[in-house]
């Protein structure tokens, strides 16, 4: 299966959310320090950032610049040392672990570099997982979870392998399942940490095409951490970090990313 085929699939297309609403992500004065045995390591030294709904943002920077930490904080996977994060209008600073998990379930999709599928579940069950975790029909607004899971698997070209376990899939296939999972409950925000980092060029390209096309169709705000220049060139906005600070923030082709393709 190739990404080009996906365009023909019948997938519900959602228009981007109105710009009149609050920004998707608002970050102010964000710092993160970790005490080590000998001294304190400041990973983030004051980040201020606003990402609009529907934007496709690439976060770049050398190793140790704090990009993955920033992404983790945005997802509420860790608590900041200071500063504030507002996701889709909700302040997540100071939320306890469980409330954070619930909010994440509704608002944030995540794609990891090393896929992180549950080995005990089949491809389809993995995709269905966020839907089940958010309590099925109720909050996610999806009427038929299993149907959507199959549609998503079909759009990443893995419908025929839906009963396979992760170990029976190649790296590229696992990442495609992870993509389908990330979009399962239509989260307004999708965070991706080097999603192609563990894949070879061809598979990486395939996954990237899928990610971008799904993102366009679903109208999601996409924040992606990457080393890959080619990948970042597809983004509507490029933020570069160095030593825990934003050193550049460029917007280009803003229209391209927010406008759905026919």
């Amino acid at each position: 299966m190739h990404a080009t085929q996906c365009h023909n699939k019948k997938l519900e297309v959602h228009p981007p959310r109105s710009d009149l609403r609050a920004p998707a992500i608002q970050v102010s004065g964000l710092t993160k320090s970790i005490p080590t045995a000998t001294h304190r390591v400041d990973i983030l030294r004051g980040i201020d950032l606003e990402i609009q709904l529907g934007e496709f943002v690439a976060i770049m920077g050398p190793s140790g610049s704090g990009k993955s930490t920033l992404l983790g904080l945005l997802a509420g996977l860790d608590t900041p040392t200071s500063g504030q994060i507002i996701l889709d209008g909700e302040d997540i600073t100071g939320l306890d672990e469980d409330r954070m998990a619930l909010l994440r379930g509704r608002k944030v999709g995540f794609v990891f570099q090393s896929y992180h599928l549950l080995p005990t579940l089949t491809a389809e069950e993995n995709v269905l997982l966020p839907y089940e975790l958010t309590g099925g029909n109720g909050s996610s607004g999806i009427s038929d979870g299993p149907k959507r899971a199959r549609e998503l698997l079909e759009s990443v070209g893995l419908l025929d392998r839906r009963d396979h376990y992760p170990v029976q899939l190649s790296g590229g296939e696992q990442q495609r399942v992870a993509l389908a999972r990330a979009f399962m409950v239509r989260p307004p925000i999708l965070l991706a940490d080097e999603p192609t980092g563990n894949l070879d060029t061809e598979n990486g390209k395939h996954v990237l095409e899928l990610l971008i096309s799904l993102n366009l169709r679903e109208g999601t705000t996409l924040v992606l951490v990457t080393h890959d220049e080619a990948l970042s060139s597809r983004a509507s906005r490029r933020i570069t970090l160095r030593d825990g600070r934003i050193v550049s923030d460029e917007r280009e082709n803003a229209e391209r990313a927010t406008e759905p393709r026919p």
Binding site: A101, L102, R104, R106, F110, T120, P130, L133
Partner: peptide, 14 residues
């Protein structure tokens, strides 16, 4: 797995 589940929105109770 616990971490993945939590990332996907699972509470500790879950």
């Amino acid at each position: 797995e616990v971490v993945i589940l939590k990332t996907l929105g699972a509470t500790r109770w879950r």
